[in-house]
Each structure stands twice: as C-alpha cells, then as structure tokens.
Design a protein around this nucleic acid. Structure first.
Lengths: 207, 207
DNA sequence: CTATTTTTGTGCGATATGGTACAAAAAAGA
DNA sequence: TCTTTTTTGTACCATATCGCACAAAAATAG
C-alpha cells in the first residue's frame, strides 16, 4: 500500500469518478462527436490536466472501453449467480444486461445500450485499434457465456454445441443493445431475451 | 417523362452515382467522422453544389440511410426468392445479408457491416431524428422477416410465434452485422446464421 | 528555507469544421 | 441579342477541433 508518498502537487480530482463522467459522455455522443472541451467541462478539469492524466482522446476512450468491459463482466457474472441451472442463469444474465442497456442501473440512468456496441462500430473501419477493441469485447462475451453453459451442462453438450449456443446468445444480446439505444420497450426486450434462451440452448423445452 | 426542359446551367454530376460515393464515405467513417471536405473530394463537387443538391450534411446522411434501406429490402427479397420453404428462404436471406456485410457484393467491397447498424447508433442519443431512423430500419426488418415467415408457414404458427421468430432472427442479423464490421470470418458468420434459423424457426428440426 | 517534483490553469497555435455570399458560367426563352 | 434560370467555383466566416508551451501553484525531501 503506497499512500501519500508522492512528491508533487496533489491531484484535485478522483480518477475513477472522472473516468465515470467521461464514460457517460462517450456513451451518449459516441467517440467522434465528443470533444475535449465537453470532457473538460463535465469533469471540471482543463485539457492539459486531462492530457497528462489519460493521454490523448483516443487513449482515454480505449481505456474507458476496457474499464467498461471489466465492469460489465463482473456485473453479469454476479447477476448469473443468483439462480441455478443453465437456462435460468442465462436468462438472469440477459435480463441484467437489458436493464443496463435500458438505463435501469446506477451505472447509467439512460437507455444508451452497450457502450462498446453503440459507439465502437462507427470508428472500427478507419482505426484498427478500435476494430480490435470491438472484436475483443465480442470474443470476451462469447467466451463468458460459453464458460457458463459449459459449466452448467457438464457432458450433456458437445464443445461445439456449447460454443455455438454462446455465440447465438451473444448475437442476440448485441441486437438487444441496438434496440435499447433505438428506444424500444425494456420489457419487450426482456421477453425476447427469455424466449431466445429457450430456443437457443440445446435441451431446453421448445414452446 | 420530363426531360431536357430545365432552364438553367446543366448539372455536371449524376445524382445517383454521387449518392453512392457519399454513402461509402459515411459507411466507412460514420456520420460525425465524415467531413464535407471529404465528401466534396470524393464526389468531385464543391460544397455549395452539394449543399444545393442535398441540403445539410444531416439531410444528406438521412436520405442515404433511407436509400440504403430500400436497396437492402429489394436485395434481400430477391435473395429469398431463389429457394422455397420458410427455413431455406430465411437462410438464403441471411446468407445474402452476410455477403453484403462482409463486402462480397458490388454495393460495397469492404466488410463494413450494415450501414444503419454500424453508423446510426452513435448519433442516436443526441439527435431524435437519427434515433427514429434507426428504429425504423429495425422495425422494417422485423416486419419483412415476419411477412416471409407468415407467408411460408400458413396456419402452422400463431401470429405471436411468427413475430417472435422474426424478431429473434433480426436480432441475430444485427449481431452479425457488428461481427462483420469487427472483421470476423464471413464463413463462420454464415454457419452461425444457418444454425440460428434452425433453432429459432418453430417446427424446424433441432440439431 | 531551498530544491525538486508534480499538477494546475491560462493561453495559444495550427488546422478543420459546417455552412454561405457572390460573381462567373452555361443552359433555355423571348 | 438580351433576359432569366440554374449550377458552378472561389473565397470566406465564425467557430470548433486536438494538442501543447509555459509559468504559477502546491506538495515533499533535504
């Protein structure tokens, strides 16, 4: 624990809180439409301080994406642990994701969808770093869901079935993020998510 | 047919070809990251001409989105008519969409995903016109797929089953667009799409 | 108290931005 | 030919953009 041993003038701001504010800006406007002036205003910092702390606008954004992905991971994992069985856990995870997408969590009170899905795409062609960040987020979601399915359905599914079901559910989830940002009804999205799990997870009763 | 009856100086450019070039720019860079200078350069027109012909940057973009949705509609409809039966038609449509998303059509030779899904989202929160445009594109896709399913499975499905399956497939399709723009393998996406149809369409054999 | 280190804040610089005024150009009408 | 209409192209405007010098400020170390 290294505390209070730094030499120079102390920082006037809390780094985590500042990153949260910047995240909300990027989440609302996207990357290109967010300016350093806006960031400076909502954080109360001036540009040189921002630049010194986080580097360029791009570095700031990519750091925030990574941070978001981490938080999302733990948030969804936690949501999945409140029930048992593959299908119920998957449904709980998807319901939790939809709640976040539609602005019903403390992380974001507005229906902005998934930060990565909503804002990374438009920049993904011109800049390879953005494209890779997007692909990492997707792959991470695939693997996370696959790991849950694999764990909950020991030996009853082949590895291919597990991975395929996980990708199908991730595809659905990303589609739901888009609809959340398009302003669609949260409850309707939850119903879609539930029935999607029933259809996609092998061995579940098909209505 | 009113031709060659206009009074003033003739236009130096073909409107359709020009819109195509602008579309590709927006498709690549997104809305905010595309400048009028870039548009002027790739079209060979200067800004006043562009402005006179299409209005503001925003009007230009929204017109191009609408035009894209129309083309996509006819393109997918045509792809679906080359087979018979609900599942084969849906698979053909999804395969065609993936080919377009991954840059294997003459409309776009690069893997940019769906123009609307890729570029509309980031602007959808700040500007209600963009959000509505996004929602229209989504709803149109829902209805198009539902209409096909309804037509191909007369009486064997309830209206609710039809609409739900259509929305599930649209969700998958939008997820696939994201993955295409993220650079994922087109053949892998096609396999995912095929198996998704098998799982989602009621009454199809479940692997 | 002095030197050192780090952050802050003012201010700037070079360029890019969306949009437009205005005159020249190119067609048709009379 | 002379007017009218429409498009073109130059030049411009006000502002916004990202990024950075540079000195003052605020802490610690000796």
């Amino acid at each position: 624990m290294k505390t209070e041993t730094k030499r120079g003038r102390p920082r006037k701001f809390d780094e985590d809180e500042t990153l949260d504010r910047i995240m909300l800006l990027f989440w609302k406007n996207g990357y290109s439409a967010t300016s350093l002036d806006q960031i400076a205003e909502t954080t109360g910092l001036n540009r040189p301080s921002l630049y010194a702390a986080f580097g360029s606008k791009k570095a700031m954004y990519l750091k925030i994406i990574e941070r978001f992905a981490d938080r999302m991971h733990t948030y969804l994992r936690q949501a999945g642990m409140e029930t048992e069985g593959a299908a119920p856990r998957l449904k709980a995870i998807m319901a939790a994701a939809i709640e976040l997408y539609t602005g019903q969590t403390e992380l974001n009170g507005a229906p902005y969808g998934c930060l990565a899905i909503s804002t990374l795409q438009s920049e993904a062609v011109e800049d390879a770093d953005f494209r890779q960040a997007l692909d990492r987020v997707i792959t991470r979601m695939d693997k996370g869901i696959a790991s849950l399915i694999r764990h909950e359905t020991r030996d009853s599914l082949t590895e291919n079935e597990v991975r395929e079901a996980a990708q199908h559910l991730a595809l659905i989830l990303h589609g739901l993020s888009i609809r959340a940002r398009a302003g669609e009804n949260p409850e309707a999205l939850k119903i879609l998510a539930e029935s999607a799990v029933d259809k996609i997870l092998p061995g579940t009763s098909h209505g």
